[in-house]
Structures are given as structure tokens and as C-alpha cells.
Design a binder for these strands. Structure first.
Length: 270
DNA sequence: AGCCAGGAAGAAT
DNA sequence: ATTCTTCATGGC
């Protein structure tokens, strides 16, 4: 925690919205702020009223991670529809899409399938605790080698349920793959790669594409998005719905998905 | 094409 | 104290 930097508060950046919109699981409240771990880095973020104070081990890492280079005002303007999307933008205007590590995103979203966010956080925390490098105050996200070596039984023992077999099998497959090379592929080619992994379907593939590879021409369709569009797309299967929504929202589909997900999931709160 | 088990914990009743 | 829901997928 040697480096400190400040980020001015703007209408298009809110730390709580960014962390709590379901894209990331390794954060927790601490006294006066929040602690977020990503790959093998960790930051504590404090609200100072006019600005946020970031205390971290690598300022450059977190400046990139929080995606401060994207012009969210421009993206939001381009997505306004005067209707449902505009309402969702108004509610989640401060969301940034984090630039997560591809491997961490792949395993995190395997854990996320048909699961509650509080439980997802617990499983991933226990994974890091047991398999990730000890960094003192926290544990790093485990390497593919560590995950591949843990064994299916380990993942079952930390409460992963039937996802234990997926985690084990995907890790063993990825040992023979160079994920860095995957970055060069088109979104469709990359999705095909992800879908070839046992335990990754369209939903998890699109989450990995959006959060781990920063492809915005994807639209993960989960139970909340289904609720948003159940009248408009009656009896349309989730995979087909995803394809139709990408056609509808184009290159900013991923942003629209995040705003709608966050808006719908919090509908009953506040 | 459509159904269902896989696991467990928060939320709802 | 039960039952329902949850950022789904693979097998049949």
C-alpha cells in the first residue's frame, strides 16, 4: 500500500456503483471505505467528499483497471433512448466497466453461474485464501497452474457445488493454452474459444468477453436481463435473446447490459 | 427441442 | 420452518 492517488468525483464515476453492479466479486467494506483486490494487486478506496483517495500497491495498475480513459459521457449520450435505457443510465451513471484479468474473469464467472452474489464472493475468497499467493494483507487470485493442481474435491469442499468439476476441467485445459494470444481474436472467434471449454456456455462466455477481454459488443443474458426483456422477447431462449440484443445495441451492448442489470436488480431496494 | 440434476445460501413466505 | 431464487450448463 505504498502508492496514493486521487480521483475527482464526477457524475460518471461512482466507486460503489462500479463495484456493486455484479461485475466483480473480490471487494469488501472496510472502515471508511472499500478494499478491492484484483489479480495480484489490492487497493483501498476512501471517499473524501470531493474526491476518492486510492491507496494501493500499484497506481498504474488500478488507473487502468478502473477504466478512467473511456469517455463515459460520450458512451451514455450515444446510448440514450428516451426510455428504459435512459432510466437505467440515470440510475447507474457512475458505473465503469472494470478491465479485469481474463483468467480471473473466466473462473469467477464459472463460479457465478446460477448462483447468488454473496455466495459467489465467498467461494472466490476461499479459492484465493487457499490457492493464491500470500501477499500479506490479502491473497492473490490463484494461477491457472494452482487451480489445475487443486483437484475437483477441493472446489467441492469450499462450496462450489457442481461447478467444482468445471473449475478443475477448465483449468487443466487452459494449461495448454496461451490466453495472451486470445486477445488478438475477433469477438466471435474468442467466444467460440470460450464456448469450447467444458462448463462455459453463452452467458459465462459473454461475461468473460465483457469483463475480462473488454469486448463491448456482447450482451450477457442472465435472469435479470431476461426479466427486463420478457415481454419484448416472449419465449425467446437466452442465447437467441443475446444475439438479438447485440444487433439492437451494437458496439455499446456491454454498457447497456450493465446499466439494465444494475437497475433491475436494485429495483426493489431504495 | 425441451427437461432436469447439479449444490448451497440468501430471500421470501 | 419451508419454499423459492440465484449473473447456467451439459447430458439426455
Amino acid at each position: 500500500m505504498k502508492e496514493t492517488f486521487f480521483v475527482e468525483k464526477t457524475p460518471t464515476f461512482d466507486v460503489w456503483q462500479t463495484l456493486d453492479c455484479g461485475q466483480v466479486f473480490r471487494f469488501k467494506e472496510i472502515e471508511g471505505g472499500v478494499r478491492i483486490c484484483a489479480l495480484d494487486h489490492c487497493a483501498k478506496i476512501f471517499d473524501e467528499g470531493e474526491r476518492y483517495r486510492f491507496e494501493c500497491d500499484d497506481a498504474e495498475f488500478f488507473k487502468r483497471y478502473f477504466d478512467f480513459d473511456t469517455d463515459y459521457e460520450a458512451v451514455q449520450s450515444a446510448c440514450e433512448d428516451g426510455g428504459m435505457v435512459s432510466k437505467a443510465i440515470e440510475y447507474g451513471r457512475g458505473i465503469h466497466i472494470l478491465r479485469q484479468d481474463p483468467t480471473e474473469a473466466i473462473f469467477s464467472f464459472i463460479v457465478s453461474q446460477n448462483n447468488h452474489i454473496p455466495r459467489i464472493k465467498g467461494i472466490i475468497e476461499r479459492m484465493c485464501e487457499a490457492l493464491g499467493e500470500d501477499k500479506g494483507e490479502y491473497h492473490a487470485f490463484p494461477s491457472v497452474e494452482k487451480i489445475a493442481g487443486a483437484g475437483e474435491e477441493f472446489f467441492a469442499s469450499i462450496g462450489a457445488g457442481y461447478r467444482a468439476a468445471y473449475l478443475d476441467r477448465v483449468a487443466k485445459t487452459l494449461l495448454c493454452e496461451d490466453i495472451g494470444e486470445w486477445q488478438k481474436l475477433s469477438t466471435d472467434a474468442l467466444r467460440s474459444k470460450l464456448l469450447s471449454l467444458h462448463g462455459i456456455g453463452r452467458k459465462v462466455a459473454d461475461c468473460a468477453l465483457l469483463f475480462g477481454f473488454n469486448r463491448f459488443d456482447v450482451f450477457p443474458v442472465d435472469t435479470w436481463i431476461k426479466k427486463v426483456f420478457e415481454q419484448e422477447y416472449e419465449n425467446v431462449p437466452a442465447d437467441k435473446m443475446a444475439t438479438l440484443l447485440i444487433q439492437k445495441y451494437g458496439k455499446y451492448s456491454g454498457f447497456v447490459q450493465q446499466w439494465l442489470f444494475f437497475f433491475k436488480r436494485n429495483e426493489k431496494k431504495v
